[in-house]
Write a protein that binds this DNA or RNA. Structure first.
Lengths: 223, 223
DNA sequence: GTCTATATGGGGATAGAC
DNA sequence: GTCTATCCCCATATAGAC
């Protein structure tokens, strides 16, 4: 323990990721993080400026490669179909797979960060929204455009709502908070990353393609 | 201000709901809650036992009527179809509408509580999971059974995952955290409760009905 | 870069007067 | 039921020795 090597920032990031995922940002103290990391309390404020800056660093470390891969997959899919839009499934896989595959690529950091990433969508507060906007703004813009092209007949309001539902399903899957817990392991396996991706993509593609109620006919709200 | 009437517990619940929704549980202090409510700090520990008990009370107050209504709507739909299963759309509406309609029924408590309810699904920690299990355990069990009956051909693992995605989309919609913020109000209106319900139900019904890849054919993971 | 020690403030909870 | 005052603990952040 307590190797004084130069990997202290790494160790802090790993511990912070793990504990933030378990307990949330506000409830996780720097003391707990430094204890878990086996480093001194003051090291956090030396290597990072503050707790808030540490949170941002935790996200940036993982999200930047994930987003690069998302864009690569999206562009590859677009290149395959030329001027036509790629199939919905390819767009959805480009969006979901890089994040979900984190689970397999790291010992346990992947799982922790997935929970974090899922949670940031529902986390309140200012820095959460800043991180979202800063790290995911371009992702949102480019994938929204891709969906719009793939579903040209869909009214903008419906497209927006469906993207909203899609984000919710993805975030919840990343977060890994399973209701019906007696089910997990019994009839389904969250560690089956590729199966999860396949099922998520199929579900979302069908939802995005759902028929739209004729625009003129407004429901009367009573029955 | 500071009316010493017997409605102090009410005032505390209202303030707590509002502030918890805005800032989360851990980051919201009892001092802030009592200040917002215009009551004394000690009143919280007098009327409720502790902060944790206050959180549970906040959820119980709204969730109990919502869940009653969910069961009523589910049973009404089942009564209409006799031994056959109700259409997916009716089940989904029974699950989603009572919660989403909270927005219209209260001045602003509805919006606050919706955010809370959406967030509890991703909130970490012990009491969050306890509340989830205790308040939503029966809801999960009965609606899962309804979905199972409505989709008898769906393998259990796929059914589980689809319910999981469904919960994520619902929670995110309740939480009301809109990505692509330049869209809201521009092309879509979160205050249109019935429109939101209609779109959510259509999206989820299509996702639940998505075709399942033939069981025997396992994808080789390499393209 | 790392550590000890501490400054400074805020948290939940309670005792006891009214 | 309500309030003041306070106990006791823990938080983030920093100063300054090593």
């Amino acid at each position: 323990m307590k190797r004084t090597g130069a990997d202290t920032p790494q160790r802090i990031l790993d511990a912070a990721e793990r504990l933030f995922a378990r307990g949330g940002f506000a409830a996780t103290s720097l003391r707990a993080i430094t204890a878990e990391a086996g480093v001194n309390l003051a090291a956090v404020n030396y290597h990072f400026r503050s707790k808030e800056a540490l949170i941002e660093a935790v996200f940036a470390r993982r999200l930047e490669p994930v987003n690069r891969q998302r864009f690569q997959m999206l562009e590859a899919a677009q290149a395959r179909t030329g001027r036509r839009s790629p199939p919905l499934e390819a767009i959805l896989e480009a969006l979901a797979a890089p994040a979900l595959r984190l689970r397999g690529e790291m010992t346990d950091g992947g799982v922790s960060f997935q929970r974090l990433m899922g949670r940031i969508f529902l986390e309140p507060g200012e820095h959460a929204e800043a991180i979202l906007q800063q790290q995911l703004g371009e992702v949102a813009a480019r994938f929204r455009a891709a969906f719009e092209k793939a579903l040209p007949q869909l009214p903008p309001a419906d497209l927006y709502w469906r993207i909203h539902f899609l984000v919710g399903a993805m975030a919840h899957t990343l977060a890994g908070t399973h209701i019906l817990p007696h089910f997990v392991g019994d009839r389904c396996d969250p560690a089956d990353v590729e199966g999860t991706i396949r099922r998520l993509v199929a579900f979302l593609a069908a939802g995005l393609r759902a028929p739209v109620r004729a625009a003129g006919r407004k429901r009367s709200r009573k029955t």
